[in-house]
Design a protein around this nucleic acid. Sequence first.
DNA 1: CGATATACCTTGACAGGCGAGGTATCTTGT
DNA 2: ACAAGATACCTCGCCTGTCAAGGTATATCG
Lengths: 120, 120
Amino acid sequence: MSITSDLLRGSTDTIILSVLEAGDSYGYAINKAVARATDGRYEMKEATLYTAFKRLEESGSVLSYWGDDGGAGARRRYYRITESGKKVLAVLRQDWEESKKIIDTLTKGKEDGNKDPDLH
Amino acid sequence: MSITSDLLRGSTDTIILSVLEAGDSYGYAINKAVARATDGRYEMKEATLYTAFKRLEESGSVLSYWGDDGGAGARRRYYRITESGKKVLAVLRQDWEESKKIIDTLTKGKEDGNKDPDLH
DNA sequence: CGATATACCTTGACAGGCGAGGTATCTTGT
DNA sequence: ACAAGATACCTCGCCTGTCAAGGTATATCG
């Protein structure tokens, strides 16, 4: 695994839904938006993206439609977040905040008494 | 998957190494320490723990030895973090800080102009 | 002497990430 | 006119980490 891939795992859906919350978008654009927002430090892989779209659509968090507007390049499949998806997003954000605290707590060190739980 | 399992994924090694940084310990105790430190909000599964130990030992981040001290219960296999492991831990902590920033950035929303990257 | 806590370990299934490969459209340079 | 490159989508199959389930052994306590 690469440096961040496993840490970012589990945030893929949250990221996508967050982008869609601001307005309908499509795969290629989201990919670029993510890369731009992180100054290229993180880039979602296409396979990961499309797998996530499928997952999100099947679970009813997003819906998709073909955009026939004349952009530069091929036809685009746009995604829109559903009401259900907005609720899911809220929960995912809460989960993230919670997880952050947990990991920070467990990762700072300074634990004592690991050796003998009997003493506690 | 449970709520946090996918978000915690990728932090397992960091957590274990952080505990060991404070002193040698063993599986069962680490498990309890983690549960205690998070007030039971998070509990590592045993299978996950022992898989991680194996991984960490094979990569040289920890070493193990049988403790024959008379604790309550069966014999314990203690783990000690190596010098190499300490370096790995430092990197993992940095990665975590970096990932936190990335996810926070991508998750806050407020992105605009998703629709047409051409405009940027 | 059986229940419970301590303590370790393995197997197999599952899910998400992603490398690799494929298809089609549109623009631009020569 | 045509090749190259950007835009844009999608699938297959492997890899890795998680974890439910199951197993073993020892010590303590009622």
